[in-house]
């Protein structure tokens, strides 16, 4: 390890950071705002996804089995249904069980003693892992031998999928915008430092420094600005989570907020990484534009 080299390099980076201190602070602040918004947004999106997943667990595909089927093939049928892609769970509900369930459900409302015969078929109740898979699963099950008909809450599934799809598109747009904003801010800052150091750069080129070597301190500068901004944002988010979420959770009881700290740690790391990456790429590009001969 050549400490003299390390010291020189750090000195150059530090010179970059301090030369435009006010500008750097603006950049860090703006990146912090962009990333805090991004973080808040991702957090909300995740919460919404958790909520919708939970709601969707109630959506089931019911496969009504034909009375004329080969009863001995039932275990094979259940296994084949369970093996279909996207299927989370299959339950077999026999005619008799179905009638008993119905009686329990209607007790007190209807005189169930009127049900003397059992009009119900045997049923497979199928749960999907994701709501998006439900229609495909329903089609596949319907094609299986011994299945007379298939039912599910098609309208609800469609509506939920529309909402989720729209949320995803909007979310993607918001993320792209925020990343672009952070990117723009950092590359403007770097362009200013590059400009203020153009004499150094010209001399570096004159004495035979490679372009990569010239770039390095600026990239380090971008990474520092990006990750400092992200760190500020993450601090804000963690504080907000710690202080605000418990209060919110008490107010809005129907949403299962993830309140424990571990939920936000991967998100925080992702945001830090995003800040550093955006900083590095932004500086790479803005210095590169200057170095091209």
């Amino acid at each position: 390890m050549d400490w003299g080299k390390v010291k020189f390099f750090l000195g150059e980076v530090f010179a970059n950071l301090t030369r435009n201190a006010a500008m750097q602070l603006t950049a860090i602040g703006s990146v912090a705002v962009a990333i805090a918004m991004l973080g808040t947004f991702l957090f909300v999106q995740r919460t919404a996804a958790a909520v919708s997943d939970q709601a969707l667990q109630q959506i089931e595909v019911s496969a009504f089995l034909s009375d004329k089927r080969d009863l001995k093939a039932d275990s094979g049928l259940i296994a084949r249904t369970g093996a279909l892609p996207g299927v989370a769970h299959v339950a077999y509900v026999s005619k008799a069980q179905g009638l008993k369930d119905l009686r329990d459900k209607l007790r007190g409302e209807v005189d169930t003693s009127l049900l003397t015969t059992n009009p119900l078929p045997d049923v497979l109740r199928i749960r999907a892992r994701h709501v998006a898979d439900v229609p495909a699963i329903a089609d596949a099950v319907k094609a299986l031998p011994g299945v007379a008909d298939v039912q599910y809450a098609a309208k609800t599934v469609q509506r939920v999928m529309n909402v989720l799809g729209a949320a995803q598109r909007v979310g993607l747009a918001v993320i792209v915008l925020l990343v672009l904003a952070a990117f723009q801010i950092i590359s403007n800052t770097i362009r200013l430092t590059v400009y203020s150091r153009r004499r150094e750069i010209a001399i570096m080129q004159l004495v035979g420094a490679t372009n990569n070597y010239i770039r390095l301190p600026f990239i380090a500068e971008g990474v520092v600005a990006g990750s400092l901004g992200a760190a500020v944002a993450v601090t804000l988010l963690l504080t907000a989570q710690h202080e605000l979420l418990p209060a919110l959770a008490q107010l809005i009881t129907f949403i299962p907020f993830p309140t424990q700290a571990p939920d936000l740690i991967p998100l925080a790391l992702q945001l830090l990484g995003a800040g550093a990456l955006v900083g590095a790429i932004a500086s790479w590009i803005s210095v590169g534009r200057y170095l091209r001969v």
């Binding site: 080299k5 020189f8 004495v207 420094a209 490679t210 070597y213 010239i214």
Partner: peptide
């Protein structure tokens, strides 16, 4: 002039 060429200390 030496350092920017990556010379050893």
């Amino acid at each position: 002039a030496l350092q920017v060429t990556g010379a050893r200390t």
